[in-house]
Design a protein around this nucleic acid. Structure first.
Lengths: 210, 210
DNA sequence: TTGAAAGTTGACACTTTGGTCAGCTTTTGA
DNA sequence: TCAAAAGCTGACCAAAGTGTCAACTTTCAA
């Protein structure tokens, strides 16, 4: 056989799947599920189309594999919202981490946005349940801060939406952000300025007057 | 002839174009440009496909017609950001109007979001220039307020992005909003609560301590 | 009433698409 | 060395896609 099933490397398979996924992320992000042709994914990953079908049995399988990967690495920025921290520091870190992540993973971010705008057709019940649970957990932290008088009584769920939306915008809607900021492309400084403005404004908006 | 060229009604033509546009908005919003098939638009508008081609010469022409319509009715909510008003009232009205508009025109809103996420391929230079000019005009108003000491010195462009992003989110990313708010569908009350939370938080974030 | 413009449409041509397959080459454990 | 598993791929297909067209019906000003 080409290699034992227990072969720890699995190099060819791994490499090709990685190439397909990588190309898929870019193209699904730009074209959405229905607009993406696997011939294009094949070309972008440097593999013949039939070879793509050797690893994935359908377009949907490529797509859902990507979505699953995505969700797994999704909650990372939220780790900063933890009860041991002070709210000011927690939100500052969260905003920075979220902007950083979307900036460095623009295609993933857009792919996810695209999937949601198109009706979240491929998000499973389990995926959505996961989103709910993660939100709940962090809502509880914020409610704790409010109860402790460390924060004004702001609705935590709407607050999360404001944070999510504001940070997401720069990557997902980059062309509009570029026009609104009157620049030609978003530079690191623009993201820093965004983080600063969002953090300052929101923090003044939710912290007790000091 | 069917009717004089000067006929003030033009009913058939008008009606059919309206039907096609209406169906197009829904379907382009759900599927994006590449994912939309004109056969589906035809079916949704109750016309045979060939009849759709009688009014529009291509898929692209339908799409760009819709985008043009959209942009025309876009700046409406921004009218509240005007120098005669006090910032608090202006932002409150803007947030309410924007949430209202996106709620009542979800498909348009999503179609536009979809177009941007997919790289703004069909926004003309003129369209984008328009976005810049509208932003500039309102940035100037905010700078006036800041100079007059009516507002803290917040970067107006990033502030607009926060407002745009936060209000847009509820319609464009409705499935996620539903999960985050732990509900089954967004009701009028949810939009009211959203408007209140956004307005309170942002206003506390940008107004001088009183 | 009439004739020409406007509107309608089934059927068609041509292209692209997702997906299959038979047979090829490469890899590797024994 | 060698056989079998893994990997590869050109060629193909049925279905679906965009766009066209010739012939039909409807409308209405004169």
């Amino acid at each position: 056989m080409a290699r034992a099933a227990r072969d720890p490397e699995e190099r060819i398979r791994e490499r090709n799947i990685r190439l397909i996924i990588k190309a898929g992320i870019e193209i699904f992000a730009r074209k959405g599920f229905d607009g993406t042709r696997i011939a294009e994914i094949a070309e972008a990953s440097g593999l013949p189309k039939a070879n793509v079908y050797y690893y994935f049995s359908s377009k949907e399988e490529i797509y859902t594999t990507i979505i699953a990967h995505l969700l797994a690495s999704w909650d990372n920025a939220l780790k900063y919202i933890s009860p041991e921290r002070e709210p000011a520091e927690a939100f500052r870190l969260y905003i920075k981490a979220k902007l950083d992540y979307t900036r460095k993973n623009m295609a993933e971010s857009r792919l996810f946005a695209s999937e949601i705008i198109q009706g979240a057709r491929f998000l499973t019940k389990k995926d959505r349940e996961h989103i709910r649970q993660v939100t709940d957990r962090h809502v509880a932290v914020i409610e704790g801060w409010i109860a402790a008088g460390k924060m004004l009584p702001v609705d935590p769920r709407h607050l999360f939406i404001m944070l999510w939306a504001s940070t997401q915008f720069y990557s997902d809607f980059e062309p509009v952000a570029i026009d609104a900021l009157k620049t030609s492309r978003l530079k690191a400084g623009d993201y820093d300025k965004a983080a600063a403005t969002i953090a300052e404004t929101i923090l003044r908006g939710i912290l007790p007057c000091s």
